[in-house]
Design a protein around this nucleic acid. Structure first.
Length: 314
DNA sequence: GCGACAG
DNA sequence: ATCTTGTCGC
C-alpha cells in the first residue's frame, strides 16, 4: 500500500459495494472501516459526489439512529426510501424498522487511515527544531479545488528573481481533518524546486500527531518548512501560544493567522521568519501563490504564462 | 442546539 | 476548500 499516493476514493467506493443486498450501514461505520471515525463527514461528501449511483449503492448508507437521511439525487430522499424498500428493507416515516437487524458493519478492510496515522507518527519523529536561519530559495505552495480536481501552484523566490509553476491533477483523497498531507503533499512533491524554505498553507506540528502538511512536506523533502493556517484546529491556547498535549506547537500572530513550525524551526523562529516575509495583512508569497491557484482554478488549468504583475492586478 | 472542524 | 445573496463596516 503506497500511502503517499493512496486512492481513498476507490478504496471507499469498494467498501460501499460490500454492503450486501437487504442491508444498510452508517456514515460512522464506513468511517470506522476506513480507520478513523473523524472521516464520517468525508464519507458523506464522497457519497454525495458518487459518479456511479447504480454501481455504488449510496442509498444503503443511513444515519446512526436508523433515520434514512439525505440523498443527492434529482428525486431526493424519497428515491433513497424507494430503493431501500425495493431491497426489502422496511422503512416507516423515514426510519428503518428493526434497524440493528439490517445493519451491516463487517467490512473487509485494512483500515488505511490507521496506517496513515502510524506513518504520521514516524514523520513526527523526524522533525527537528533547529536549522538554518538564512535561505536562498523560498517556495510557497497552495491548491484550489473543484469536486475531483486540484489546481496547485508554487512561487519560487531567489533574491529579486521569481518564478511560478502550476500543475493540476485528479483528486484521489478527500479533505479529512488530520490527513491533509495525504491530499496535498503529492502536489508539493511535484512542484518542489529544491527550495531551502517551504511556506505552506496549513499546519506543521500543530496537529494531533504532530505531523501536519508542513511537517509532512518538510520531513519527506528534508528541508525547512513553515505552516501558516487561517483557522484554529484542536489545541489548548495559553495567551497566543498553542499547545497539543503539553507541547508548544504554534502561535496566533494575528486574528485568523496561525503559525506553526513544519521542520527545522521552533515556534519562535518560525514566527520571526513569517514576520520577515510580512506583506500587507499576510505573508506576501503565500498571498501571491493563493491568487495564482485561484486563477489557475478559474481558468481550469489553461494558464500558459503569468507574471507577478498580472497576478497582483486581480 | 451543540460540538468540532488545518484545507 | 467551495457553494453563494445580501449585509455590515470602514
Amino acid at each position: 500500500m503506497d500511502l503517499e499516493d493512496f486512492d481513498l476514493y476507490s478504496y471507499f467506493y469498494d467498501l460501499v459495494k460490500q454492503i450486501p443486498d437487504g442491508y444498510v450501514t452508517t456514515y460512522g461505520d464506513l468511517a470506522e472501516a476506513l480507520g478513523d471515525p473523524i472521516a464520517a463527514r468525508a464519507v458523506g461528501y464522497m457519497l454525495s459526489i458518487n459518479e456511479d449511483p447504480d454501481g455504488i449503492p449510496c442509498y444503503r448508507v443511513v444515519l446512526h439512529d436508523g433515520t434514512v437521511g439525505n440523498y443527492t439525487h434529482p428525486l431526493g430522499p424519497q428515491e433513497k426510501v424507494r430503493r431501500l424498500k425495493a431491497d426489502g428493507i422496511p422503512v416507516v416515516s423515514g426510519k428503518i424498522e428493526d434497524f440493528e437487524h439490517h445493519r451491516f458493519r463487517d467490512f473487509r478492510t485494512d483500515y488505511p487511515l490507521k496506517k496513515m496515522q502510524e506513518y504520521q507518527r514516524k514523520i513526527a519523529e523526524e522533525y527537528t527544531e533547529s536549522g538554518p536561519e538564512k535561505f536562498e530559495l523560498i517556495e510557497a505552495f497552495d491548491v484550489s479545488y473543484t469536486d475531483r480536481m486540484g489546481f496547485a501552484s508554487s512561487v519560487v523566490l531567489h533574491g529579486e528573481e521569481m518564478e511560478s509553476y502550476v500543475i493540476s491533477d485528479k483528486i484521489r483523497f478527500p479533505y479529512i481533518p488530520g490527513y491533509l498531507g495525504f491530499r496535498e503533499f503529492k502536489f508539493i512533491r511535484r512542484l518542489y524546486r529544491n527550495a531551502d524554505l517551504l511556506l505552506i498553507d496549513g499546519n506543521g506540528i500543530l496537529h494531533p500527531r504532530y505531523a501536519g502538511l508542513a511537517t509532512h512536506a518538510g520531513v519527506i523533502l528534508n528541508t525547512s518548512a513553515i505552516g501558516v493556517a487561517k483557522h484554529l484546529t484542536r489545541s489548548v491556547k495559553h495567551d497566543e501560544y498553542l499547545y497539543i498535549g503539553d507541547r508548544l506547537t504554534g502561535m496566533i500572530i494575528k486574528k485568523n493567522i496561525i503559525v506553526s513550525p513544519g521542520n527545522r524551526f521552533s515556534v519562535r523562529s518560525a514566527v520571526m521568519t513569517v514576520q520577515a516575509l510580512w506583506g500587507d495583512k499576510y505573508p506576501w508569497p503565500l498571498k501571491l501563490v493563493h491568487q495564482l491557484s485561484t486563477m489557475h482554478l478559474d481558468t481550469r488549468g489553461r494558464i500558459l504564462e503569468l507574471d507577478a504583475q498580472s497576478i497582483s492586478a486581480r
